[in-house]
Design a protein around this nucleic acid. Structure first.
Length: 396
DNA sequence: GTAGGGTTAG
C-alpha cells in the first residue's frame, strides 16, 4: 500500500500489527511499530494493547510487563480496561497469577474500573488453582459493585462447585442466576450439570436434564450426548449407550471423535477388543479419523489383553503402533509407555529396547508405571542383561 | 483497528 501510495492511517498500521501478532510474528509487529513512527503516525491505546497481547501470546511476559510499565512511565497512552484485561489474562496464562491479581487491584488507582471480563478472567484463574472460595467472594464483590456476572461467571463457579460435590451451593447459585440476575443457563450450564449427575452415578437425573433443556429451548448438542453416552458406558450399559447413538443420529446430530473414543474405551475396558477394533475402523464412515488418544486407548486395551493371555494381541498392538506415524500422527509419551509396557508384559524385551531408544530420541522418558513393571521384572530376572540395560536406559 | 471464557474421551 505504501509503495503504491495508497493512503494509510494509524488504523491500517494497527490492523497490520494485529495481524502479525496473531501470526506469531511479534518481531515484525515491532518493526511495523517503528515504521508507524517513521511515517509520522501516533500509535494509540489499541496499537499498544495489540502489541502487549502479541508479547504475552509468545510467552514473553517479562517484555510485556516492561512495555506496559513504560507506557505508563513515559505517558505514551493511558491504558484502558482492555489493556489491563489483556495484561491480566496474559499474566495468568504465563504462570504469574499473583502479579495478575496485584494488577487487578491496582486498576482503580489508575482510574480504570474493572468490568465483567476482568472479573471473569481472575475468577477463572482462581478456579484453575482450586481457590473456589476466593472465586466465590469475587463473584459477590462484583455484584456489590454492580458489575454484573454473566453466564460465563456462573458456569465457571457452578462447574467447580459440582466437582467438589457442593450441591447445595450449586442449587442456590442456579436459583440466583435465573431468578435474581435473570441470566439464562445455556447449553454449557446444562452440560456441566449432566456431567456432574453422570459422574455421581445419577443417570436418571442426568437424563432428566435433557428434558428440562428441551422445555427451555436450549437444545442438547453432541457434548451433552457424549456425556450421557459416557455415563451409560460407566455403568456397563452398552446397550443404552448404543441406543443413545442411534437416537442422536435420528436427530441428525453426528457423532464426533469423542463419541468414538468413549465407545472404544468402554469396549477395551470390558476386554472386548474385537468390537473396539471394529468401532475404530468404522470412524471413517462418519468422516472421522482416529487421533492419538484413540490409538492410546486401543494400544492400552490390546497390551492389557495380550499381557493377560494372548501375545498375538501385543503383536496387533505393535502393528497398530506402526500405523500411527503413517497416519501423520505424532505418538505421545503415554503412547510409548503403553506399548513398552505391553512388550515387557509379553516378554518382548528386544522390542521394548528399540522402543525405549525411540522414545528417548523423541524427548520422552519412562513413566512411573513403566518403571514399576521393569523393577518387578528385575526382581525375578536380575541377571537378564537386556532387562538391566533397559532399566538403565529408563533411569536417564 | 484491541481483551476473556466454559462442557465430553485416554
Amino acid at each position: 500500500m505504501c509503495t503504491l501510495s495508497i493512503p494509510v492511517n494509524i488504523f491500517t498500521f494497527s490492523i497490520a500489527i494485529n495481524c502479525c501478532c496473531h501470526s506469531n510474528w511479534v518481531d515484525y509487529a515491532f518493526s511495523l511499530l517503528a515504521t508507524t513512527f517513521k511515517r509520522g503516525f501516533v500509535p494509540d491505546v489499541v496499537t499498544y494493547t495489540t502489541l502487549i497481547r502479541g508479547l504475552l501470546s509468545q510467552n514473553k511476559s517479562q517484555e510485556a510487563r516492561l512495555f506496559f510499565a513504560n507506557l505508563i512511565k513515559f505517558r505514551q497512552v493511558q491504558p484502558d480496561v482492555v489493556t489491563f484485561n489483556t495484561m491480566i489474562d496474559g499474566l495468568c496464562k504465563t504462570g504469574h497469577a499473583d502479579m495478575a491479581f496485584w494488577l487487578f487491584r491496582s486498576m482503580e488507582k489508575c482510574d480504570c474500573e474493572p468490568n465483567t471480563v476482568t472479573y471473569n478472567t481472575i475468577i477463572d484463574s482462581l478456579c484453575k488453582r482450586g481457590l473456589v472460595d476466593d472465586a466465590f467472594n469475587l463473584h459477590s464483590e462484583m455484584m456489590e459493585k454492580c458489575i454484573l456476572p454473566d453466564v460465563w461467571t456462573y458456569n465457571r463457579i457452578i462447574q467447580v462447585l459440582c466437582n467438589l460435590n457442593r450441591w447445595e451451593e450449586v442449587g442456590l447459585l442456579l436459583n440466583q442466576m435465573i431468578h435474581d440476575m435473570k441470566v439464562s443457563p445455556d447449553v454449557h450450564t446444562f452440560n456441566i450439570l449432566v456431567d456432574a449427575y453422570s459422574k455421581s452415578g445419577k443417570l436418571d437425573d442426568a437424563k432428566h436434564i435433557i428434558q428440562i433443556m428441551n422445555e427451555r429451548g436450549v437444545y442438547p448438542n453432541i457434548v451433552t450426548y457424549n456425556t450421557l453416552i459416557h455415563a451409560y458406558c460407566s455403568q456397563g450399559q452398552m446397550d443404552g449407550a448404543l441406543a443413545m447413538l442411534n437416537t442422536i443420529r435420528s436427530k441428525k446430530i453426528m457423532p464426533d471423535g469423542y463419541t468414538y473414543n468413549i465407545l472404544v474405551n468402554a469396549y477395551c475396558r470390558e476386554l472386548k477388543l474385537d468390537i473396539a477394533m471394529d468401532i475404530y475402523r468404522n470412524m471413517a464412515s462418519d468422516g472421522l479419523s482416529p487421533t492419538v488418544v484413540t490409538h492410546n486407548i486401543l494400544l492400552h486395551g490390546l497390551c492389557q489383553l495380550g499381557g493377560l493371555c494372548k501375545n498375538h494381541y501385543v503383536d496387533k498392538a505393535l502393528s497398530l503402533f506402526r500405523t500411527i506415524e503413517c497416519n501423520g500422527l505424532i505418538p505421545e509419551s503415554d503412547t510409548y509407555n503403553i506399548i513398552i509396557r505391553g512388550c515387557l508384559w509379553s516378554k518382548k524385551y528386544d522390542g521394548a529396547c528399540k522402543l525405549v531408544d525411540k522414545m528417548v530420541d523423541c524427548g520422552f522418558s519412562s513413566d512411573a508405571a513403566t518403571t514399576s513393571v521393569l523393577r518387578h521384572l528385575l526382581l525375578s530376572k536380575a541377571q537378564d542383561p537386556t532387562l538391566v540395560a533397559l532399566y538403565q536406559k529408563c533411569l536417564h
